[in-house]
């Protein structure tokens, strides 16, 4: 399964003050807070870790159908980090989700999966945010149609083979990202 999360860094700056007292304690483990305090760019580290947790949460939420606000239980490990990408994993109880993130000065986008095979046939659609992004996706992506199923979750159908493909959609501020397996 796939989960993704995009953070518009310029919007996050206005929307959230993570330096507020006790803010980090509510969502990050001691180890994660250490990474933030040692980081060259703590803003990027905060939102990188957050997008890793959110992307992993989406998979867990879809598999269990349980909604909980428990970001601190999703524990991140960063394995590789440079100023353009990051790789790592998120642990939740006995589960482990692999993550790959794209980092720019304006946004961070993380894709998580519970099976590394999903990274093999991964497709990523990006566009500046517009309220009709689903129809934009459908007109720009030939052979695939996205829609929301009865449970309110996004699905992608291959219009030729009629196969249903795993997908995840994320929108924040000026950014929208749709990832799916082909």
């Amino acid at each position: 399964m796939l989960g993704n999360d995009v953070v518009d860094l310029n919007l996050a700056k206005i929307q959230s003050n993570w330096r507020r007292k006790n803010y980090l304690d509510k969502i990050f483990t001691g180890e994660e807070q250490k990474l933030i305090s040692l980081a060259e760019n703590p803003d990027v580290t905060v939102w990188l870790l957050w997008s890793m947790k959110e992307a992993a949460y989406k998979i867990h939420n879809r598999t269990t159908n349980k909604r909980l606000f428990n970001p601190i239980s999703f524990q991140c490990q960063i394995l590789e980090l440079n100023n353009k990408t990051a790789k790592g994993f998120v642990k939740y109880d006995t589960l482990k989700f692999l993550t790959a993130s794209e980092i720019s000065s304006d946004f961070i986008h993380t894709i998580a999966t519970d099976n590394s095979l999903f990274f093999k046939n991964l497709n990523e659609w990006q566009n500046p945010y517009h309220s009709n992004y689903l129809s934009l996706f459908n007109s720009q992506t030939s052979g695939y149609q996205i829609y929301y199923n009865e449970s309110g979750l996004p699905e992608i159908k291959n219009t030729h083979g009629k196969t249903i493909h795993d997908t995840s959609v994320s929108h924040h501020g000026n950014y929208v990202r749709i990832v799916f397996n082909s």
Partner: peptide, 10 residues
Amino acid sequence: NSANLVDIIL
């Protein structure tokens, strides 16, 4: 926004 849920809790 889920990041603002933290603010609400605080």
